[in-house]
Design a protein around this nucleic acid. Sequence first.
DNA 1: CTCCTTATCAGTAATGATTACTATTATTAT
DNA 2: ATAATAATAGTAATCATTACTGATAAGGAG
Lengths: 137, 137
Amino acid sequence: MADTRTAARRSYPRDVVVRVLNESYDHPTAYTVYERARKIKPDISRGTVYRNLKLLTESSEALLLETGGEFAHYDGHTEEHSHFVCKKCGEITDIFAKPRVPEEISEMGLVVTEEKCIYYGYCNKCKEKDKKKEKKL
Amino acid sequence: MADTRTAARRSYPRDVVVRVLNESYDHPTAYTVYERARKIKPDISRGTVYRNLKLLTESSEALLLETGGEFAHYDGHTEEHSHFVCKKCGEITDIFAKPRVPEEISEMGLVVTEEKCIYYGYCNKCKEKDKKKEKKL
DNA sequence: CTCCTTATCAGTAATGATTACTATTATTAT
DNA sequence: ATAATAATAGTAATCATTACTGATAAGGAG
């Protein structure tokens, strides 16, 4: 006995959420994760999805992505990477290039354990659309 | 006449919001901005604050900061800079060091117009607390 | 294997930040 | 000044997320 800690138990609903995250490469919102989870376990509840998304992000098994849009997005692939968000269509693209952490930060005595870099702009598709528009004007 | 565009008008409530943002260096939440605006114009409404915060961030006159916490924060100082968030106390520190935008992004054809980098870790105060704790254990 | 503790769940109710709405006010061009 | 309409105060509505509750089940101890 002694020190019976609050530990994580394995459960099917949680596994379903993890599986959905692992199989998704489009940075789904919580609701989209819920919809996909329901295809596997139709009676999974919203609360379960939200609770597990929170637990998983807190334990760094998933990434929380706040892009400035209405909803939060989730990424089950935790290899270090950044994201590019198209301001026109909202598409999120993975950027597998490690951004340099400014030395200034550690010089200030701050201890950095994580970083989240989001780049904004226009994706290839939307970039082209703009060009066409300009021609019309 | 011709082309009567939707233009921004100057208004006192909007000026109040701008002034609060300019005078705040602690990255206030929308509600904090509202509280501070009320000290200047007691009958300013929440809707006005939210609407103007949205307009100001859309026009890049203010920065929207989503740190993973419960609320969004706002920063009226738009000189290019990043932020450091303490995972313990939540304090947000300005980092005036420009992070390098990975070349890979433009190589992918993506057009970058903005970037938001948030670093997470422990501030000087919380770092020290942890040290003391470790000694006890 | 059985018992026990309690983490987790499904389902539902509640929360509360943000947005929408509406009648009114105020800004700017003419 | 007048007209046109952007912006506001105040309030109601929205809806993503969280909290709650009784039931279930994971997993350690014996």
